[in-house]
Amino acid sequence: MIVALIGVIALVSVNALFLIWMERKVAAHIQLRPGPMEVGFHGALQTVADAIKLIGKELITPEEVDRPIYLLAPIVIFLPVLVLFLVIPFAPNLIIRDLNVGILLIFAFSSLTVLSILMAGWSSNNKYSVFGAIRSIAQNIAYEIPLLITAMSIILMVGSFKLSAIVAAQDKVWFVVIQPLAFLLYIICATAETNRAPFDIPEAESELVAGFHTEYSGMRFGLFFLAEYTNMFVVSAVATVLFLGGWRGWILPPVVWFLIKVYAIIFLIMWFRWTFPRLRFDQLISFAWKVLIPLAFVNLLVTALAIKLF
């Protein structure tokens, strides 16, 4: 178990460092520039240098904050993310705990992110932070519902909450072929769940400066940052399991296939961020309640009907 924990922490850190580098490179190439080039090969060590800088920075605690909650928030956002890695099936024999409620555990723990954002926003005693926190809660609740419903339509087909069973059920055809609408809905909701553009309302910098983490500096800010990228990895991993056949592939070892698919989805999410403008808060919420949730329900009903008929 301890080996697994160390493994997870190592994976989380290396993955976050890689993703931040990747995001910079993706952004740069979309924007006609080369991105970081100086530190290491094509700037590969740039994020390591940045991490060292962040750790070395002074941790400023503003005077008027609600101290215990303010200090707890970055930890609360980061710990649940670690738990999620327990059940992700990287390869047939590379699952730390193949729980029979794996997918439920993931959704349950990823919902905790909202709590931490609320804690950070409220305790900062800053109006911009409170705005960010309130928006974030409304948004995450609104987008969690369609996310769960789309996942449910897959679970209906498999008949199990077990992630390895879901992968096993895709031995003939990936679920993305059978459930394209569900995949689309899932990607949209996942982007919103991770607070990524065009749904980055909680930290919309042109309106709210930096949203809920305005008052955080140094490694405390770093933890929020780390959590965002790790969350991105988790939602992409779940998408891979649910729709893209998990570790399935040819010639290459299963774990490589799994990571290729995950990073492909992450690339897609990054692509969104650097291409779209931001939605307005009310448009975002009504999009979730009036479009995504009904669509997800219809999809679920059709799935159930099809299973009953065939």
């Binding site: 952004a27 924007q31 006609l32 520039r33 980055d200 291409t275 779209f276 403008p277």
Partner: peptide, 16 residues
């Protein structure tokens, strides 16, 4: 202006 609306990329194209 697009930067204000949250679209970062057009900014660099315009500056180009």
């Amino acid at each position: 202006y697009l930067l204000d609306l949250g679209a970062f990329t057009p900014f660099l194209y315009c500056f180009d």
